[in-house]
């Protein structure tokens, strides 16, 4: 089952730096194609959307399909110009949203 997301953001950066953000969420990402031992299809249950916001503005987002491996890992870049908070949101097929936040201080 899904648990607390893990996110890696540098604690500090200089203004104008492009930083690397790494995220990982524990999730089975059930594709909806696999069958259990009785031959019944296991219903699809994946994270279908990921959004990263910085101070309320979207920086990066993805639309995810079942072809993404279990425990979805995402690595991407962001350009920082001021101190603030990154907010990360993962949306499950069942509507659950997993959220976490990270602060960064920019000098």
């Amino acid at each position: 089952m899904a648990s607390k997301p893990r996110v890696k953001v540098p604690k500090s950066a200089s203004a104008g730096d492009i930083i690397t953000i790494k995220t990982l969420l524990s999730h089975t990402m059930e594709s909806g194609i696999r069958k259990d031992k009785d031959g019944n299809v296991i219903p699809r249950k994946i994270i279908n959307k990921f959004v990263c916001e910085f101070n309320g503005a979207v920086v990066f987002s993805c639309d995810i399909d079942p072809a993404i491996a279990a425990n979805p890992y995402l690595e991407f870049k962001a350009k920082v110009t001021e101190s603030g908070t990154f907010k990360f949101m993962w949306t499950d097929d069942d509507g659950t949203v997993f959220e976490t936040e990270k602060d960064i201080s920019v000098s």
């Binding site: 979207v58 990066f60 993805c62 072809a67 979805p72 890992y73 991407f76 870049k77 350009k79």
Partner: peptide
């Protein structure tokens, strides 16, 4: 055929992303 769609913005700084797929 669909795997993933990355949506970038100018605030991304660099259009680079990685993930793990099946």
């Amino acid at each position: 055929p669909d795997v993933i769609t990355f949506n970038f913005t100018p605030a991304s700084g660099e259009a680079t992303a990685s993930t793990r797929m099946r």
